[in-house]
């Protein structure tokens, strides 16, 4: 990798709720809902949206866990950067459709890769592994 990738803290909200309740939610505009499991959404702000200011998330599940999730760091990548990382650090084929969330080991670190509609992509890793990730990708 010729360039040094710099990850930054990503504010997020985390919602864990019944899958059916989750399906029924309309996520606030200006957010990206990363459905990391049937019962689990990582909600991040798109563009300039401050996700921490969005407090009116309602899910039809009284036992839902809705909390801030401060554990993520991310970086926006161009499609060329994604391709370059995939060639060296991803052992699995990226899904063809867009937008789509791809999850798995990237450089052997558990990662989330949101492939946006316009070819750009957000790579998320746990902040506790971000230094290691930066070192591996550079």
């Amino acid at each position: 990798m010729p360039e040094q990738l710099r990850f930054a803290h990503v504010d997020a909200r985390r919602i864990v709720a019944k899958p059916a309740a989750m399906d029924a939610v309309t996520w606030p505009t200006g957010t990206i809902a990363l459905r990391i499991a049937d019962d689990d959404v990582l909600l991040i702000g798109a563009g300039t949206t401050d996700i921490t200011a969005i407090t009116d998330i309602t899910v039809a599940d009284e036992h839902a866990i809705i909390s801030d999730d401060a554990g993520w760091s991310g970086i926006w990548l161009t499609s060329a950067q994604v391709e370059s990382i995939a060639l060296r650090h991803i052992h699995w084929p990226l899904p063809p459709q867009r937008p789509v969330l791809a999850q798995g080991l990237i450089a052997a670190i558990p990662s989330k890769l949101w492939l946006g509609p316009d070819g750009d992509a957000l790579l998320l890793v746990a902040t506790v592994s971000v230094d290691e990730m930066q070192e591996r990708l550079s």
């Binding site: 019962d39 999730d69 554990g71 993520w72």
Partner: peptide
């Protein structure tokens, strides 16, 4: 059983 789980080890 009906129980949600959220691992917060790396968030907190």
């Amino acid at each position: 059983l009906d129980c949600h789980i959220l691992d917060r080890t790396t968030s907190l």
